[in-house]
Amino acid sequence: MPDAIADAKRALRAELRERRQMLSQSALDAAGAGVRAQLDHLVDRLGVRSMSCFLSTTTEPGTREFVEAAVGRGIRVLLPITRADGLLDWSVATPGGDIAEGLFGLPEPVGELLGPIAVNDVDLLVIPAAAVDRSGMRLGWGRGYFDKTIGSMEGCPPVYAVIFDSELVDEVPREIHDQPVTGVVTPTRTIDLAPAGR
């Protein structure tokens, strides 16, 4: 059975990756502007002073404009840095901060490394996803970094996954280690799906 679930996840990820690669630059630009507006509203609604976010790749709904603006507003934003042991280090975002290619070719900040527990003090986690279903289950990209992070946090704050509108689906394949999210942020809306602090 686990093999069937793993196969279903791989197939869905491949389909979603292909769909993202077909998007035009204007569609991606519009998505980034929409996500920034949605995230701005979310941090205001939750009264966020400290949060984590990720630096979007070229095919993800853009988060970089939001990160720059949040730092400019005085919000402390922690950005993830992948480690070979499956955990995430964190670095504080700075205005115009340098970006390098991380372990898996993903954009990561260049700066002082804070250990995995640095994220325990944030008010909000904003994480990437391939898809999320209506119960709040998230399909990641298969490396498990964010599932480990969320699963290890005591008193986990709200967790929102950033996806395109079409990636909120009825159901995603799930395994025992998969962690739900509180909600999703898309270019057009923010939807609460499951209670925070699971």
Rank of each mutant, 00 (worst) to 15 (best):
V185I: 13
T188F: 14
A33M: 12
D123A: 05
P157R: 09
L79R: 07
L106W: 12
M22I: 01
A14I: 07
I163V: 15
S50K: 15
V48C: 01
D3R: 14
S152F: 01
G142D: 07
G62D: 05
L23H: 08
A33Y: 10
R174E: 03
S135P: 01
W90K: 11
Q21A: 14
D3N: 13
D89K: 09
V48N: 01
V181P: 06
W141N: 11
G115D: 14
T63W: 06
P180Q: 03
Q25G: 02
L124W: 09
D98Y: 06
L106Q: 11
R143Q: 14
V77D: 10
K9C: 00
V77R: 10
V181A: 02
A6N: 08
A194M: 04
I163F: 11
R83P: 00
G72H: 11
G74C: 13
Q25C: 00
T188A: 12
A69R: 15
V184M: 02
G102W: 13
F54T: 09
L88T: 03
P109S: 02
S50Y: 05
V43A: 01
L139C: 10
L42N: 08
S26C: 08
V35L: 05
G96S: 01
M153T: 07
L55T: 04
E68L: 11
G183L: 08
G197K: 02
L106F: 13
H177W: 14
A8I: 04
Q38Y: 03
L139E: 07
L113K: 10
E167A: 04
D7Q: 13
A14S: 12
G105F: 14
V162P: 06
V77G: 09
E112S: 06
Q25I: 05
R10H: 08
Q38A: 09
G102N: 07
A196F: 09
D121V: 14
R17V: 15
V43Q: 01
K9F: 03
I99N: 04
V43W: 02
A194V: 00
P157Q: 11
G155W: 11
G111E: 10
W141D: 04
S56M: 06
V172Q: 09
G111S: 05
E167F: 06
G96W: 08
T94I: 15
D178H: 01
Q179H: 05
S91R: 08
T149P: 12
A93F: 06
L124F: 06
D85N: 12
H41G: 15
E68R: 14
L114F: 10
G115C: 04
I191Y: 00
I163H: 05
V122Q: 00
M22K: 15
V162R: 07
P109G: 03
L55N: 02
E15Q: 12
S91E: 07
A84D: 13
M1D: 14
V77C: 12
V162G: 03
D178E: 04
D147A: 04
T188P: 11
V110L: 13
I163E: 04
G115Q: 08
G144K: 04
F164R: 00
Q38S: 03
S91F: 03
G144H: 07
G183D: 03
T58F: 09
